[in-house]
Nucleic acid binder design. Structure first.
Lengths: 263, 263
DNA sequence: TTGTGTGAATGAGTTCACAGCT
DNA sequence: AGCTGTGAACTCATTCACACAA
């Protein structure tokens, strides 16, 4: 099935840009904090600072939702909380199942921010029979055999996978077959799902590797002035090959010296 | 950004695009799997499929690293593994500290992919005196008091924050003051750090909210025209100002995780 | 005057499509 | 023939800067 249909007529979302959607939860969190302190209104500047973005971006983001602010004044906190919640679909409660109740699964189950923000843990599922019935975060762990019925009975459409990498795809397939259409994957695997199913992944080692990349870059250009890539290029202390390998140069994987060692 | 430093990132002489950097770990993982199966070479098409991206993107990404492939043939797996590892800075071992050894911290400490890919857990740190000395993932938990000396003695430059939201900024400040320049934050807070310090965040509830947004959208267009979103629809108050949902009506996002408080 | 809302300008990231090496 | 490497076209995202409403 190499030639899968790469057709994607759908997703013609003339709606809110994806980048904006990804920031709405951030705004919502900042607004909720303000709301708790009974702050009535905020300016884009203040809210942007609290959310860690710049005000122009925030205003642009909000402009996709509608004109919810008041010129010369700012935004009504409560009103915005409501509008964003509604936009994100948090005015309803989403039942969620967590599959794989190891250290991570337990951590997720115990995460407080769950229930308070539109989500409800419908069930914790694990393949280990020894875990069955054992309470975690106040819920009894259910065995994988029950997965399908749990999904169906509770109308679950969002599943969280916290299993070892080896089990992830299988679990994913079962979740999808049972009706789940959104998956949050914590296992270090690329999941393949049918069209229409959304997958987001959270991957510790990828994040660390990205940090390592930047960390290495910092170390490499320490003594340099301000901060610049263009200039730093010349000083790259990389080994042999370099970035732009010699055009007609060698490229064989043969005896290449494993340079680069910690100083 | 905070500081309006209008610099000149103009010419792209040497920087690898951020989006590409974020995918390198993905390629590396796929390549490592191939390497283990002793596959000697891969085409961009095959590798792209394994990594979950399309081949044009993959080739473009690799082009930033150099010309490491062979036309008509593909890429040498071992060679690419090495080149990407080097680019990501994984040819050296990065000592990492994990602060906040609750459910999540323990899960991270137990995560296997750590040591095998260029990272080494130098220490587990928690503010709870009762945790001190207790072994987690084979390492004794150290008390927060020792944070600075641990960082210094081990030359740690990457820190992972897995504390409750309330403690995160404080921990962050101490890590930075002690010399950490890259932080992976699992706490649901916006951390503020001085320039030069990198922060990446992993946030469960944000991911879920993004999924909910798309989930809601699916429900709205695919199923019957009549949405169950009646709840939200009915409360649409846009005309006068000052219209706000019942102040005391919404539930508080409390339910914070227990324990762990720095001095 | 203050601060939103938004076209226009700029920049980043992706996809196309094909020249060129093996 | 097969497959990489890459300019060019295109799409998405961010930033600018200012008209306009309160």
């Amino acid at each position: 099935m190499a030639t899968g249909r790469t057709h994607r007529p759908a997703t013609r979302s003339r709606g809110i840009p994806e980048a904006t959607v990804a920031r709405l939860p951030l705004y919502l969190r900042a607004l909720t904090a303000l709301s708790e302190r009974s702050v009535p209104t905020v300016s884009s500047e203040e809210l942007a600072t609290a959310a860690g973005v710049n005000s122009a971006k925030l205003r642009k983001d909000f402009s996709y939702l509608g004109s919810y602010g008041t010129r010369g004044v700012g935004y009504d906190v409560e009103y915005l909380v409501y509008q964003i919640s509604r936009e994100l679909g948090l005015t309803q409660d989403w039942p969620v199942v967590i599959v794989g109740i190891g250290n991570l699964g337990a951590a997720l189950a115990n995460y407080g921010g769950f229930a308070s923000r539109g989500f409800r843990v419908a069930a914790l599922i694990d393949a280990d029979p020894a875990m069955a019935g054992k309470p975690v975060a106040g819920l009894p762990v259910r065995h994988t055999d029950e997965l399908e019925s749990i999904i169906t009975d509770n109308g679950v459409s969002i599943g969280v996978i916290a299993t070892p990498a080896g089990a992830a795809q299988q679990v994913c397939d079962r979740l999808v077959a049972a009706g789940v259409t959104s998956i949050l994957n914590f296992a270090p695997t690329v999941l393949s799902v049918p069209e229409g199913v959304d997958v987001r992944k959270v991957d510790l080692s990828i994040e660390l590797q990205i940090l390592a990349f930047h960390e290495q870059r910092k170390a490499g250009e320490e003594t340099s002035p301000a901060q610049e890539t263009a200039v730093a290029a010349a000083a790259q202390p990389r080994s042999g090959a370099g970035v732009r390998p010699a055009p007609g140069g060698r490229k064989g994987p043969d005896g290449d010296v494993p340079a680069v060692m910690p100083a």
